[in-house]
Amino acid sequence: MNRSREPKKILRLSNVGIKKDFVCLRRVDGKVTNIAAGLELYTGVFNAVEQERIVDHVYELMEKGRNGELKERTYAAPRKWMKGKGRVTVQFGCYYNFATDKKGNPPGILSTEEVDPLPSLLKGLIRRLIEWAILPPSCVPDSCIVNIYDVGDCIPPHIDNHDFLRPFCTISFLSECEILFGEVLNIEGPGLFSGDFAIPLPVGSVLVLNGNGANVAKHCVPGVPSKRISITFRRMRESKRPVYYAPEPNLQGLKPVLPVD
């Protein structure tokens, strides 16, 4: 570790905004429950220069995918057959099947489908998430999905598959948008949803999903008003890891820079 950088790193860390007091009370199984418990929003995690570098790298990865320079399952650009459908995805670490496919495979990690390993720049983001105590050392991500939205693209209501451990997180780039949560999320039209509460996601922010916020409340991203990129980092459940899985040597033994209260 470069000790000369530690004071600057600690100063940056001290300027990160943290919101953990999300509350949305709903009756679940006959009991009043805060379905927002476990959600945490960190702002100012990535500055403008870092964001630009990350966005440029994502576009480089997208171009490689278009040119067939990534493994077949890594890059996907579905046909936009209706408004709100068809965002580009780039997956690393494992291949996640979003819906039951033509072979009858259910949603979840497909253990025999190979994708590219995490790029170095994305591993750098993971190190920051752990060192800045945004994610715990017990849940270091080993996979990610990069979502590249065009205007109107959305993510429909869902709860993240339990092939992935909790907590997990999503990082926002290019433009701010809202993520919508609710015990029930209603589809009002193409890319239009209604629910219990929304959280604005500023550029450079990290939203951590854990507890009820990850397991009870559904979430979705309504059709975005402008181009957006998000990177979702998750750790695979050990029993669900692909057959080709190998631990990333430089993601082992990570610890927070400062003691965690």
Score class of each variant (00 low, 15 high):
A133L: 02
S120M: 14
P137F: 01
I145A: 11
S111C: 13
T100Y: 00
P137W: 01
C94Q: 15
N67W: 00
K85H: 08
L70T: 12
S143M: 15
L121W: 15
Y59C: 03
Y96S: 05
K85T: 07
L110S: 08
V55R: 03
R127I: 09
P141H: 09
S111K: 15
V151G: 05
P119I: 07
L135T: 01
P136D: 04
K83G: 03
L61C: 02
P119A: 07
G152I: 02
V146K: 12
L135W: 01
V90M: 15
G108W: 14
N97Y: 01
I126E: 02
C139Q: 07
V58M: 09
K102P: 09
E60V: 06
K64P: 03
K123A: 04
P119K: 08
Q91S: 12
K102V: 08
S120P: 00
K71W: 08
L129Q: 06
Y59M: 08
K71A: 02
V88N: 12
E72L: 14
E63C: 00
P136H: 03
P119G: 05
G84F: 03
H57A: 10
R66L: 08
Y59V: 01
L121S: 02
G68H: 13
F98E: 08
N97R: 02
Y96C: 02
I134A: 04
E63S: 09
P136Q: 00
E113H: 08
D153M: 14
R87C: 04
A133Y: 01
A99P: 00
G93F: 07
V151F: 09
N97V: 04
E69F: 12
V55A: 09
I130T: 02
D101V: 04
N105G: 07
L61E: 11
V55M: 09
A99M: 03
P107M: 01
R127W: 02
T89D: 11
G86M: 04
I134K: 04
P107F: 01
T89I: 15
I148P: 12
C139K: 13
V55Y: 04
L125K: 14
I126L: 06
D56P: 00
T100G: 00
R127G: 02
A133Q: 04
I126N: 03
D101Q: 02
E72Y: 11
I134Y: 08
V146C: 13
V115C: 09
G124W: 10
G84V: 00
L70D: 12
G104S: 06
E63P: 00
Y59F: 15
R87I: 00
G124K: 14
A133I: 01
E60W: 12
Y149W: 09
L129A: 10
T100I: 05
L135P: 10
H57N: 09
V55C: 07
I155G: 01
N105P: 00
N147L: 12
E131G: 06
R127K: 14
R79K: 11
C144V: 10
E60T: 10
M62T: 03
K80T: 11
C154S: 15
R79D: 08
K64D: 12
E63T: 05
V140H: 08
P141Q: 04
K83Y: 01
G104V: 07
T74I: 10
P137S: 08
K64W: 15
L70A: 08
C144P: 08
L70P: 00
Y95Q: 10
K64C: 12
G108V: 11
Y95A: 00
I148K: 13
A76Y: 12
S111Y: 06
